[in-house]
Simulated scan of single mutants.
Amino acid sequence: MRPIGDLSVMLKSRNSQNFLERTVNQAAQSVTTGIVADKTEHLGGSTLGLSLLERKATLLKQLQANLSEALIYANGQQSSLEYIRNVSEDLANSLPPISQQNLQNELVPLSERAEADMKNVVQALNKAIAGKHVFSGTENNNKPLIESSTILSQVKIKTAGYNTASSVISEIDTWFESVGGGFDSIAYKGSSSSYINIPIGVDVEAEYGFRADDVVVRQLLKNICKVAIATDPSSSLSSAQRKLVLEDAYVGLIESGSPLITEQANLGIIEENIIESKDRISQEVSQTELMIQNMIGINQFEEVTKFEAAQKNLQILYQIVARQSQASFSDYLR
């Protein structure tokens, strides 16, 4: 049985060891993270201010993520609309010279071009941006449009047998424009009434209101279809009637350019607002994190010195305890 004096020394050694180990661990954690290990102790038990700042930082970072997502969508839509507008303009610019020439020699290449343009426009509208189909409205897990080949097939079926330009134009217009018609019931698969809204500030949202069922999209697609139908070698239209359909398509393609430009301008405003908000929020995040750092941050040099001193004292204590253990063992053997 150990004397009372030995037990007292052992207890003091154990307390010193626990204190030094805790000091070493806390100092090591502080050096690694750059903040104090025990925030409550450091702040004297008053942590409300810190909690509010940390909550603010969390909300600001969530807002930053929303802004980044919103900007990706805006940039993606802008890129798609720019591409679609270029396709429309290029096809329109190719029509007047052809209508003045012998159309028979141009049927196959122009028909193939129209089909290719139709495919490219549909693909641009169906493109997923950051995993979402942004031209589908709120139903953005699905592509907004069916395959272009299916749309063309449906329109060809609708216009089959007609041999006058007015009849063909009327059937195509009706298929794309009528409520509940072919485009609504067959071609478009997105949301019919909702848009994508992303919070980008207090009571502020970025709204993406342009969908693949927009009037300008219908106008663009129907006029590409008119070019494809007018140049389809199997069509019942005469050369004169084909040219009339092409002339109507040309006017429609030209007219679709202005609404597309307007929509791009609207997107440009959204992009500008998002970028300005991102810059402002980034500054707020930096300021908030600096305030938090000032409250619970450490002096790296002082903390390293504290760590090294505690570690050195702990090593000395280990040596003392080891020697005491050896002495006790020798006493026992005697």
Rank of each mutant, 00 (worst) to 15 (best):
T32V: 10
N15I: 11
A228E: 00
T58R: 12
N75M: 00
I261R: 15
I84C: 01
E89V: 11
I281M: 03
L267G: 00
Y73G: 03
F301N: 15
S192G: 13
E41N: 15
N273K: 13
E247G: 14
Y83T: 05
N86V: 13
P233E: 06
L67P: 06
V202H: 12
S325W: 12
F329H: 12
E82C: 05
S256P: 05
V251P: 12
N102P: 08
A57Q: 03
N266L: 08
S148T: 03
A116Y: 12
K127C: 00
I4N: 10
L237A: 08
D214E: 02
V227Y: 03
T138H: 09
D213M: 02
I129G: 05
S8T: 10
D173L: 01
G161L: 12
Q287D: 12
E69R: 15
F307C: 04
S194Y: 05
G5P: 03
D213K: 04
A124F: 07
V245I: 06
E255M: 09
I320A: 03
L237H: 04
Q64N: 15
E69Q: 15
I129K: 06
L333N: 10
L317N: 07
Q326I: 09
R55N: 07
M1A: 13
Q324G: 00
K143A: 04
E276T: 14
Y318M: 13
K39G: 06
A116P: 08
S111G: 08
V134C: 03
L59K: 01
Q219F: 14
N266W: 01
E284F: 02
V155Q: 01
K226H: 07
G181P: 00
A27M: 08
T33P: 07
N163L: 13
V304G: 02
A165Y: 00
Q100E: 12
G268D: 05
N223D: 11
G182K: 07
L220Y: 00
S258F: 08
L152S: 02
S178M: 14
V204Y: 02
D184L: 00
D248R: 15
S111N: 07
R14G: 07
D248G: 15
A322Y: 04
Y162A: 00
K119W: 14
S282H: 00
